[in-house]
């Protein structure tokens, strides 16, 4: 038994299964982060005063992290494009870079968290710290999840390139869609938490 349209697009919808699947998953992620942003707005509007993010958090570190994530996004899409152009070597290099940028993001983030803890700033201190740790923490978990998938596709999963190159390219595309979404969430988190 073979399940249809795992590799080729279904003619009337124009998609292969996983492409639709990942977009559905991302739609649910939009609602997950949407609920958290909604909570943020509600709590902030109700609060008698709200600190400016920059007065507590480090904008330079966050700017660096933004740069790291958008770099990782462009290398991610380049790795998929390389597979499309049948350049497996280039794919490995680009996806490796994506992983490194992701790792860089996590390192910077851990410095940020460490700095907060060393100043005795914890989630329970204020509504602002609570929403900051929750939103960024959940985002970090998403980054970690994406890195695990990318590491698999870079390492053991890459064997598939020899046996089923088109399916492998699709997998990288799907992983990429997820990774760009994680980047996209950060693009909103950055101003909301750090700049406003």
């Amino acid at each position: 038994m073979d399940i249809p349209y795992t590799v080729d697009a279904r003619p009337d919808t124009g998609m292969y299964n996983a492409k639709l699947g990942i977009w559905l998953f991302l739609a649910s992620e939009v609602m997950l982060f949407g609920a958290l942003f909604s909570s943020y707005i509600l709590l902030r509007v109700a609060a008698p005063e709200w600190p400016r993010g920059a007065s507590i958090l480090s904008v330079p570190l966050a700017t660096l992290n933004t740069m790291l994530l958008i770099s990782s996004s462009v290398t991610m899409v380049m790795s998929w494009a390389s597979l499309k152009m049948k350049k497996f070597g280039a794919y490995r290099v680009y996806l490796g870079l994506t992983l490194l940028f992701g790792l860089g993001f996590l390192i910077v983030k851990s410095f940020e968290y460490g700095a907060k803890f060393s100043h005795h700033l914890y989630p329970g201190d204020s509504t602002f710290m609570a929403i900051y740790f929750t939103l960024t923490g959940l985002h970090v978990l998403h980054v970690l999840g994406g890195m695990i998938v990318n590491a698999y596709l870079w390492g053991p999963g890459a064997k598939m390139w020899k046996t089923a190159p088109e399916q492998f390219t699709n997998r990288v595309e799907v992983a990429g869609l997820y990774w760009h979404f994680v980047d996209l969430v950060w693009i909103f988190l950055f101003p909301v938490l750090y700049l406003l």
Binding site: G14, L20, L177
Partner: peptide, 26 residues
């Protein structure tokens, strides 16, 4: 801030996630 973020976000969605040439169902 939100206008800039929305613009950045739509760049990522349109080109990196190639929504510009995506299917109607999506």
């Amino acid at each position: 801030a939100l206008i800039i973020a929305t613009f950045k976000g739509s760049l990522v969605a349109s080109f990196f996630m190639h929504l510009v040439s995506e299917k109607k169902a999506i």
